[in-house]
Amino acid sequence: MDFDVAFLVSTFVKLVDAVPMTLALFAASVSLGALFALGITYCRVSGGLLLSTFARAYVFVFRGSPLLIQMFLIYYGLGQFPAVRHSLFWPVLRDPFSCAVLALALCTAGYQAEIMRGGLQAVPAREIEAGRAAGMSGLLLFRRIIAPIAIRQALPAYSTEVILMVKSTALASLVTVWEVTGTAQRLISQTYRTMEVFLVATLIYLLINFIIVRLMAFAEYRLSPHLRERPDPASGGGRQGEVHG
């Protein structure tokens, strides 16, 4: 295979055009999924038997079945019910982009809920107790003590889930959303140059994930000075000196 630089460059340019669509799928589904996950986590940890059973069942179903099938069921399956076609949701459910986002969000919500629950469980009981002993309760205790510690605990697992989601957006091509992978497949069907096109597509996903990995690592670094090395006594802690809050 000889290197056709001009072809690689033109492919790159065409695929970069589809990057906004990939990012839109990613951003919309991760944030919507986070919202769902908050609800599920709430059901799981503070609800009664009914709510926590619902949360468990949800996590089981959406983690335990293929995302591709979930997406097909939402896009192709739901439209078969006249009730759905005549409902308020039809404008959303007939649109490939909305369906893809919904499927991705429902799926990641299952994983994110488990990550959040893990983060909450990892909050040391004695730090919560110190909060209570100081007169904190309810939302104040959650906002000042529980959530900040849980988020720090959950962040590494959350990074992994976010990166998986970038890759999962590729499945949206199967319900006719023209993101990077879909666009790559269209180019291949026009040029029959599978290898080059997919190599360029791979490069683009790597670039996106590189940026995301760096951003998550930066967030982790900023949030965990207490896990890093002991500060230099001479500097009195240096930058850690900020009191923010």
Partner: peptide, 9 residues
């Protein structure tokens, strides 16, 4: 407390 229970973050 016996084990200090300072807020680690």
């Amino acid at each position: 407390f016996q084990s200090f229970n300072l807020w680690s973050h």
